[in-house]
Simulated assay, not measured.
Amino acid sequence: MIKNAANARAFPRSDAKVIAAHQFNQKLRIANLNVGSMTGRSSELSEVLLRRRVNICCIQETRWKGSKSRDIGNGFKLLYNGSITNKNGGGIVIDQDLQERIVEVHRVSDRLMSIKFVLDNQPCMNVVSAYAPQTGCTTSEKEIFWNDLDDLMQSIPTTETKYILGDFNGHIGQTSPFNARVHGGYGYKWWTDDVKQKLEQKKTLFKSWQNSKEETDLEAYRTAKKVAKRAVAQAKVKSAEDFYAKLHNIKEDR
C-alpha cells in the first residue's frame, strides 16, 4: 500500500497550467474571400489560410445548400448558410483555437451571417460575413439585404466589437485610370487580360444565343460562363495572395 502511494501521482496538474494551456493569443488575422464555389476547394482554402496564418476568414458564394458546419482540413471549420438552390451562400471559417470560443451563430440569410466570440479580458467580438446583391438582382432583393444588415448591426450591443467583411459588389467607375486615387491601386489587380478576354467571349456567346435560340449556342455560352467564372475566381485568389505577400515583405523590411 505504501509502495503504490509513493509511485502514484499525488495531485493533478495545477489549475493555473490548465488555464494557461487554453489562453488565446490576442493577435488575430481576419480575412475575406469570394471563393466562387466551395465545391472541391475545401483543402485548397484551408492550406491557404494555414500558410497565411489566418484565424478567421469570411467567404462568399459557397454555393452550398443548407445551414451546417464542416471541417475543411488543417484544423479549420466552416460554418455556412446557403439557400435551397446552388446559388449565393456565405460562411465563416474558424481556426481550431477560436472554435471553442464561439458563443453565438446568427444565420440571417444566404447572404448574411455573423458569429460572436468570447475573448480574454475584453468585450465579445462579432464577425459579420456579407454578400451584397450584384447587378441584375431586383431592387427589392437589394433593399432586403441592406435592411437585414442594418437590423443585424443594431442587434449587436454597442459595448461589443464588430468586424464587417464581405463582397459588397461595389464598382468604382467603368475605367481603371482613376481607381488608384480611390483605393491605392490594389483593388483591380485581378482584372487581367486573360480575365477580360474570357468575359468578352462569354458576352459574345450570350448575344449569339439570344439571337439564334439554338441549343448549341446555349451550350457554348454555358461553357464560356463557367470558364469565365473560374478565371475570375483564380485571378482574385492570386491577387489576394500577392497582396498579402507584399504586406508580409513590408513587415519584414521594417
Rank of each mutant, 00 (worst) to 15 (best):
K68W: 08
G40H: 08
D71S: 07
Q60P: 10
L79I: 05
N74F: 13
I72E: 07
Q60M: 14
G90H: 01
K65T: 12
S43D: 12
Q26E: 15
R29K: 10
S67H: 02
N74K: 13
I56W: 01
K68M: 14
G36P: 07
L28Y: 06
I84E: 15
L49K: 08
C57W: 01
R63H: 13
E61H: 02
Q60W: 01
S46Q: 03
R51M: 14
N81R: 02
S83H: 06
E61S: 00
N86L: 09
T39P: 10
I84W: 00
V35A: 07
A31M: 11
S67C: 05
S43F: 07
L78W: 06
E61Q: 06
S37L: 01
G40I: 13
N81Y: 02
I84D: 15
I72Q: 08
L33C: 13
E44I: 03
L78V: 05
F24M: 13
K65C: 12
F24D: 08
N88L: 02
L49H: 05
R52T: 15
S43N: 14
L78A: 12
C58H: 04
S37Y: 09
G75Q: 11
I30L: 02
S46P: 06
S43V: 12
N34G: 05
F76H: 01
R41L: 02
W64T: 13
Q26P: 15
T85N: 12
N86W: 00
R70I: 08
R53P: 00
K87E: 03
N34F: 04
N86Q: 08
S43E: 15
N32S: 14
V48A: 15
G75L: 04
S67I: 05
L79T: 09
K65L: 12
S46F: 08
L45Q: 03
V48F: 03
K27P: 00
V54K: 06
K27Q: 13
G89L: 00
V54M: 15
K65S: 12
I72L: 11
N34E: 11
S69Y: 02
S67T: 15
L50R: 11
M38C: 15
A31R: 00
D71I: 09
E61F: 04
M38Q: 09
C57F: 02
I30A: 06
S69A: 13
G40W: 07
S67M: 10
S67W: 10
R51P: 04
G82F: 00
K68N: 15
L78R: 02
N25H: 13
G73C: 09
I84K: 11
N81C: 14
L49P: 00
Q60R: 07
I59K: 04
N32D: 06
I59L: 14
R63T: 05
N55K: 07
G89P: 02
C57S: 01
G66S: 12
S46N: 09
S69G: 10
I59N: 06
R29H: 14
N55L: 00
V48P: 05
K68Q: 14
S69L: 06
F24R: 06
L28A: 07
V48G: 04
S42G: 08
L45E: 02
E61T: 03
F76I: 03
I72S: 11
L79H: 04
R29F: 11
N74D: 15
M38K: 12
L45C: 05
I59C: 10
N32M: 04
S46W: 07
N88V: 00
R53N: 14
N88G: 00
R70H: 14
G36F: 00
N55D: 14
V35R: 01
G36H: 03
